[in-house]
Design a binder for these strands. Sequence first.
DNA 1: AACTGTTGCAACCGCAACTAT
DNA 2: TATAGTTGCGGTTGCAACAGT
Length: 252
Amino acid sequence: MANQEEEAMQGEEMRRGTWLEEEDERLVSFVQLMGERRWDALAKASGLKRSGKSCRLRWLNYLCPNLKHGQISVEEENIILELHEKWGNKWSKIARRLPGRTDNEVKNYWRTHLGKRLAQVQGKSQYELGKASGDFVFENKIESNSKKNTSYEISTTHDHGSVEDIWGSCSWDNSSEASGISSADFALTSSPYENRLSDWISEYSSDIQSQMNYNNDCFTIESASSSYPECWSTTPDYSYSWDCSGSLWDMN
DNA sequence: AACTGTTGCAACCGCAACTAT
DNA sequence: TATAGTTGCGGTTGCAACAGT
């Protein structure tokens, strides 16, 4: 059998196209009930005549409560431009740096607003502007890079030497005691990549507990009374790294 | 007012990567 | 280890809304 969707299509006519309000409501209630997983099972259980794939897309691109629905701001536009220049058409990767924005939204925005404009300015085709590169994951690090505002980046080092973020970055004011950062500040955390990374951080962060604690979905940083206050307040280029052999998926 | 072209965006498709059994 | 099922990604399409004539 090719897949369950095809089978379902043969047995029963699947709905396509624009979602109705009732369908949205039903989908939301079943996602709350069953979680953001097993979309095929969810689609069947809900009685929606939609494929699991369609349900997933509708949730991630429109119904998910973490989403922003307003206009893309100038700041966000600048980030898109900068990251597209750096990574090419890696829409999901770019979207992870824009909390509340989806890959589809970023992609559409690029195509309708930025791509054309940039192509005109640079005299290049959108295809030429869309080249990407890179393959990853061997070393990961958390680093701080400012005296007053500490910024941590969970990043990965390419085997050709360049470093890229894989989970966004976050900053806060050092003056507040024991600051807490939600993983929501980094990016959406619904994909297996992020979930696995979250597990992975939980496992590997044990040797940096003195500076940073990770509890389920929340980072907390020790205050100035910690045993390594200089790491965060006086050494701008401080960098802590640890090795993780294999890929993000290789958890054994 | 009616028609045509353009734009913006939601949704779909195909495929590759990953997971579960 | 093999393979069927699931998920995520990037490219593409379809269509409603809007602008121009």
